[in-house]
């Protein structure tokens, strides 16, 4: 069983990303959406956390672009996906855990 986790809040404000990383298994996937995409930025205290995660980290491109960033500002190892990619991640994993 693998889980797709979604995180939609900025890690600079809330602990959802940290908590999600603490609870994700190595074969899980984590998708950052909405304000959660700020957790994908490089050069922050969270870049190390995400890059050392065993779970794959994804970031919703549309939300990143809306907030003025693109792939050049994203930590190494974070993969960008569009809404189609989001749908595929839901289908590829066995369940979805939204860290609300």
């Amino acid at each position: 069983m693998s889980i797709l986790h979604t995180v939609n809040k900025s890690p600079f404000q809330k602990n959802d990303l940290r908590s999600c990383l603490n609870h994700a298994n190595s074969d899980d996937a984590i998708l950052l959406i909405e304000d959660g995409v700020y957790g994908a930025l490089s050069g922050t205290e969270f870049s190390l956390l995400t890059s050392s995660s065993d779970a794959d980290i994804y970031c919703l491109k549309a939300d990143l672009a809306a907030r003025g960033f693109d792939k050049n500002r994203v930590s190494d190892g974070v993969k960008l996906v569009d809404y189609d990619g989001f749908v595929d991640l839901v289908a590829q994993n066995d369940a979805v855990n939204s860290w609300l």
Binding site: D82, V87, D88, A91
Partner: peptide, 14 residues
């Protein structure tokens, strides 16, 4: 987000 997701899922045949 739910709206965009739903639309994308339908377009993919789900």
């Amino acid at each position: 987000t739910a709206f965009q997701f739903t639309r994308a899922a339908l377009a993919k045949g789900h």
